[in-house]
Each structure stands twice: as C-alpha cells, then as structure tokens.
C-alpha cells in the first residue's frame, strides 16, 4: 500500500514538473494550444465526474455552468473592466448560484428524468443566450496586441490541478462516501442516515463551481467567439464521453479520457474531417456496452490477467527448482 502510494506520488510530481516545463521544451504555439485544450477538458470532465460519476446523477446540462461562468467572466473582464481573478470568481459564483437555484427542482427528478431535465436546462440557456447576445465577442485591439499564451497556459494548469485535487479530496472524505452510497443504492443510503438530496446538491454545487471556473478560463483564453458557443451541448457531451471512455467514478479516468480524446480528435480531424464525430460516437457506444468502467476497467482486467500469468509461472519455476 505504501509502495503504491509512493509510486503515485512520484508520478504526480513528474506530471506536474512536465506541465511546468512544457513551454520551455516545446516552443510551438500549436502544441501549447493543444495542451490548453487537454487541461480544459481534464477540468471539465473531472467536474462532470463529481456529480455524474461519483454521485450517479447523469447531468446533461453541464454546458450551462461552463457557459454561465464564461459569459459572466468575459462580461466583467472585458466590458466592466474588472481584473481577471475577481471576474473568474464571479463567473464561478454565477454558475454555483444557478446550481443552487435549479438543484431543488432538478433533484425531484430521478434517473433518466434528471438527465432529460438537465438537458432541457442547458438548451434553454443555449437558446436564450443566443438571442440575448447575438454579436461575436472579440478581444479589443490593445488586448490582442499584448496577447500572451503562457499566462493562459499556466492558468489552465492551475485550474486542472485545482479541479482534480478538489475531486480527490471530496471523494476520499466522509461526504464522498455518502455520495457514492447514494449512487450505489439511494434508498439504502438514506436508511443509514445519508440525506440523498443534500449530497446530490453538494456534488452539483462543487461540479458547477469548477465548471464555471473552467468556462471563465476559456473566456480569458479565447480571442473571439459567439457567446452562445459556450452553452453548446458539445461541452456537455465531450466531457461526458471523456469521463466514460476513461472511466467514470475514478480520479484518473477523466484525465486519461481527456488526453485520449483531444489527441485522437486532432489526428482524426486532420485525416477524416467530419467523420471523427462518427468514430467517437461509435467508440462511446462500444465503451458503454462492453466496458462500462472505461479504460480504467480495461487496465485493471489486463493487470489481473498478467498477475495471474506471472503468478502461475512463478509457481512453476519454484516447483521446478524444488524438483531439481
């Protein structure tokens, strides 16, 4: 156990060092931009995973929190002249407020009805924002002239670390145990003193806060886009697919999923243009049907098989040695 923990710790430090040193090693902006995309999706998929993976409530309206965070941050930062960090916090605050408002009615819905309800919420905001803010939002000229990629890259590094760290601390706490119990068997959890509603709401609020922060970081990063774009269901379904492909209800799953998704999308989109959507859709269906635990489950199975093989060989070797 301790040996395993040391290996994990060493791996984490290595990844953090790699992330810190990346801009020094590669100077091409395209690589840094791709790293930003991976980090953005690590944060988005990990935040979705808190409610969808650990608490078992399939949220199909995650884009609403991402979008509201982005919209609020961009408005305050660009139009109202706030500095960056207060704008980011306000964006996350707006997403959290939305979560608190919709939480009570939404959790009256269970299972697939919750999924449909949140899908509707996301679409309502998507259309409303499209009507209210039809104009493209671009960085003003003086911002464009002084645009620097590195601070934005490091902001996303910090965001991804914060999101994964928050998820890790939460799910390893007493509250995390309660959330997972609600996912496993809601009635049994309640019969043991767990308030299902409070745990779902907590998961939603934390998930929305982190998604709102991610949306805000995107608003700081991106040069020009239509405000509605941040509310597109693509953000929800990309995050959900990454969590599933990597492994829902695990910390590492959404990270692996995001990395795989972004790299594969880049490669596929270059060669196959629009067909990559079909490829991801098919992969998602296959994973849900045959590998509900995602890559993490596949790796666990392979490792078990390997251990069994090696164990059998070890026994054979030992018996041979004994015979001689």
């Amino acid at each position: 156990m301790t040996g395993k923990r040391i290996i994990t710790l060493v791996l984490i430090i290595a990844v953090l060092a790699l992330l810190a040193a990346l801009p020094a090693v590669v100077s091409r902006d395209s690589i840094i931009n791709m790293a930003v995309l991976v980090l953005l999706y690590v944060a988005l998929a990990s935040s979705w995973n808190i409610l969808g993976g650990y608490t078992g409530q399939t949220n199909l309206g995650h884009a609403a929190f991402f979008g509201l965070g982005g919209l609020t941050t961009r408005l305050l930062w660009l139009s109202a002249g706030w500095s960056l960090f207060p704008s980011l916090l306000a964006g996350a605050g707006a997403a959290t407020t939305l979560a608190l408002i919709i939480g009570t009615p939404a959790f009256k819905l269970k299972g697939v009805y919750f999924a449909i309800g949140t899908l509707a919420l996301g679409q309502v905001l998507n259309v409303t924002v499209g009507d209210m803010f039809p104009m493209i939002t671009s960085l003003p000229v003086q911002q464009l002239v002084s645009y620097q990629l590195l601070p934005r890259y490091y902001l996303f590094v910090g965001l991804a670390v914060l999101t994964v760290g928050t998820a890790y601390v939460l799910v390893n706490s007493r509250l995390g145990l309660g959330m997972m119990a609600v996912r496993e068997e809601e009635e049994a959890a309640e019969s043991l003193g767990v308030s299902a509603f409070r745990h779902k709401l907590l998961a939603l609020v934390v998930s929305a806060f982190l998604a709102g922060l991610t949306g805000g970081a995107f608003a700081f990063y991106h040069v020009g886009y239509y405000p509605q774009f941040l509310f597109s269901p693509v953000w929800t379904f990309d995050a959900l697919m990454m969590a599933y492909i990597g492994g829902t209800g695990t910390i590492i799953g959404p990270i692996i999923g995001a990395l795989f998704f972004v790299v594969a999308k880049e490669l596929l989109a270059l060669r196959l243009v629009e067909i990559h959507l079909t490829v991801f859709g098919t992969l998602f269906i296959l994973v849900v049907l045959f590998l509900p635990g995602g890559f993490v489950q596949a790796w666990a199975s392979i490792r078990r098989a390997l251990v069994r093989q090696l164990g059998a060989r070890g026994v054979r070797l030992a018996s041979r040695r004994q015979a001689s």
């Binding site: 997972m180 119990a181 496993e184 068997e185 009635e187 049994a188 959890a189 019969s191």
Partner: peptide
C-alpha cells in the same frame, strides 16, 4: 432497518 430484497452497495 434492513430490506426484503437486499440493497447492498455492490461496488463497495
């Protein structure tokens, strides 16, 4: 209480 049909947390 316990349940007539077991409601164990299976993945725990």
């Amino acid at each position: 209480r316990t349940f007539q049909l077991t409601k164990t947390f299976l993945d725990f």
